[in-house]
Design a protein around this nucleic acid. Sequence first.
DNA 1: TTATCTTGGACATGTAATATCCAGAATATG
DNA 2: CATATTCTGGATATTACATGTCCAAGATAA
Lengths: 159, 159
Amino acid sequence: MSEGVEWAMHSCLNLSWAEPGEAVTARRLAAFYDLPPAYLNKQLQALARAGILSSVSGPRGGFRLNRAPEQISLLDIVVAIEGPEDAFRCEQLLRKGPGGSDDVDYRAHCVISQEMRAAELEWRRALAGRTLADVRATVETRFPHTPEATRDRFVNAPT
Amino acid sequence: MSEGVEWAMHSCLNLSWAEPGEAVTARRLAAFYDLPPAYLNKQLQALARAGILSSVSGPRGGFRLNRAPEQISLLDIVVAIEGPEDAFRCEQLLRKGPGGSDDVDYRAHCVISQEMRAAELEWRRALAGRTLADVRATVETRFPHTPEATRDRFVNAPT
DNA sequence: TTATCTTGGACATGTAATATCCAGAATATG
DNA sequence: CATATTCTGGATATTACATGTCCAAGATAA
Ligand code: SF4
Ligand code: SF4
């Protein structure tokens, strides 16, 4: 899994603590963890294309959450960055095996493929059941100062 | 996930149909799906190191299953090839965040990390619950000629 | 009008997966 | 014993992809 998923998770979480209606620059989000701004910007664009963030050009522009944190599942974020493909790659080996044919889609019949897909489905189900709001609530319970500290950092950006 | 997982799954499955006590050459296993023999050999070595296969040097040597198919879970195979690391990489971003410290292991505290780990645990649980014997039984039900065809291919190797 | 900021493409870099090769060790067979 | 076979493991090459940078164009607040 690409590192961008972790960046996206943290950026979305931080955005959920921004002042309502305020957009945050890619530069400021990157400065938060000393990440490469241009590259993080690409991840934010992907989140925007997925409808998780909305973007605003120009001065006072930046990114903000496009939905309520209750409506953003962790799976949404993962899929926005990683794409919808399964991690297990079925290259349809059976086509080259005995009695294999190019005309058959073995992904539909192959038992191995089905088992691997079933397992990934469990993974997706777990991620789909947790939202950004869940994560935010847990963090706020454990570290009550985090929302204020995050907003502070948005205002007094070091870079 | 690396392609070797798929190769390993198929090779273990094919080995489960070999004559009992008979070892199968890496070359023959590779010829099955026209895979690069030297590279597949590396995957088979990994399976052997993991105790899933046993290897025999010399003439009439090769690989065979080291345990009954009922004792080989799909997770065993995946871990043997991919390693035990989680797919989600926690780079401990919080260390560079506000109030971060190099002395703290944030993987233990971070909510994001915990959620991602919980999801992967579901994935592992699903894979650990299915064995090579399950897969083999399903294949034999759907395609009864497969065991015989596989043994045939072991004997009359094209390459 | 100007400075800011996103967009998206082009491009450079780095790293890991993929693939090949070879010398050495093990071993069945004659 | 001699030989052919096969695994072992390290070195190396190749390729694919993730990572990172840069720039020109468009949008917009002030
Ligand atoms: S058996 Fe399954 S995993 Fe293997 S090639 Fe066929 S569809 Fe793919
Ligand atoms: S919040 Fe979690 S995922 Fe992010 S850096 Fe900390 S431990 Fe890692």
